[in-house]
Design a protein around this nucleic acid. Structure first.
Lengths: 156, 156
DNA sequence: GTTCCTGCAAATCCTTTGCAAGTTC
DNA sequence: GAACTTGCAAAGGATTTGCAGGAAC
C-alpha cells in the first residue's frame, strides 16, 4: 500500500544503503527524487539541471556517483542511445526496448514477447545463457516522417 | 570474377576516393588491407596494432580518420558493444546482430528474419520509418556457462 | 570518534582538430 | 603547383579519482 509516488524506490534505496554500510544524505535524496519524478531517458546533464533547480550547490560528481548507486540498487539502468548515455528507471518496470527518432530525438518504448521468445530459441541453439539484451531501432517517428526533412535538426 | 580476397572492397574504396576527390595513400591501403584480413569486431587499438606490425610509423590518428572513410564508403560499420567501440566489415554482408559473452568477451553473430518482420510490424503500428537497428544480447557463451565462474576474468 | 560524503580540481580515456611538413594528382 | 594527407601535440568531451573539509552514524 504505497501512497507517495516513488515511495517503494526510496525504500529500496534506503535498504541498499544500509545493507552496504553507506549513509543517507540530503544530496542523494534530492537526486533520487528528481530522477523518479523526471521524464524518462535523462542524460547526466538533464538530471543535474533538475537537481540544481532545487539545490544549486549539488555537483555533477555527486550525480555521477549517485547514479552508480542507483544502478547497483536496481533502480536505474544505463542506456546507450545513438552515442549518448542516458538513464531510465528500472525498478519493477517491464522489460522494453527503444525506438529512437533520428530527426527529433524522441524515444518510444516497445516490447515484444515474440521477439524475446525467438531470442531465447536462438540462444538455446548456441548454448548461450542470456543475461540481458538491448534492442534499439532508429529511424523517423511519425511526425518527422511526415514532415519535410530539415537539415541539421537533431533535438534531444 | 574477383580473385584476390578483399579485391571488391578495395575497388569500392578506390572508387569512393576518386568520387570524392580524395587521394590514395600507402597508409590507407595498409589500413584497409589489415581491416579486411582481420578477425571481426576490432577496436581501434586492435586495428592500430595490426597496421603497425607492417608499418610502425602509421599513427593512431590516421587509423581513426581512415575508419571514418571506410564507414562513409560503406565498408565498415561501427558497433557499440558493452561500452566498447568496435568495427566490423559491412560491405555486402547480410544484416546480423550480436551475442556478446560477458565472461570471455567472445562475440557471436546471429540473424533472424522473424525478428526483423516483427520489428517492421511494430514500427508500422507506430507510423515509424525504420532506418536501422542494433540488437545486442549479452550473457554467457557455451564454454563460459559450463565453466565455474572466475572473478575478474573479462577477456576482450 | 570513525567512517562515509561532497565538491573541487586534476587526471583519464577516447576521439577530434590545428598545423607544418610530406604526398598525390 | 594546388589540394589532400600525415603525425604530432594539443584540444575536447565525458567520466573518474585524489583530497581536504563536512556530515552521518
Amino acid at each position: 500500500m504505497t501512497s507517495t509516488p516513488g515511495r517503494e524506490e526510496k525504500d529500496v534505496f534506503a535498504a541498499y544503503l544500509t545493507k552496504n554500510h553507506l549513509k543517507r544524505s540530503e544530496q542523494r535524496e534530492v537526486i533520487l527524487d528528481a530522477f523518479l519524478r523526471s521524464a524518462r531517458h535523462l542524460s547526466v546533464d538533464d538530471l543535474l539541471q533538475l537537481v540544481q533547480k532545487r539545490r544549486p550547490d549539488i555537483g555533477r560528481t555527486t550525480v555521477y556517483r549517485t547514479l552508480k548507486l542507483l544502478q547497483a540498487a536496481g533502480l536505474a539502468q544505463e542506456l546507450e542511445l545513438q552515442g549518448e548515455t542516458r538513464f531510465e528507471r528500472e525498478y519493477k518496470r517491464q522489460h522494453h526496448d527503444h525506438f529512437i527518432c533520428k530527426s527529433c530525438g524522441a524515444i518510444f518504448e516497445f516490447s515484444s514477447p515474440e521477439v524475446e521468445r525467438i531470442q531465447d530459441e536462438i540462444a538455446d541453439g548456441l548454448g548461450f545463457v542470456i543475461e540481458g539484451h538491448r534492442h534499439h531501432i532508429f529511424g523517423l517517428c511519425r511526425r518527422c516522417a511526415a514532415r519535410p526533412p530539415r537539415d541539421g535538426v537533431r533535438g534531444r
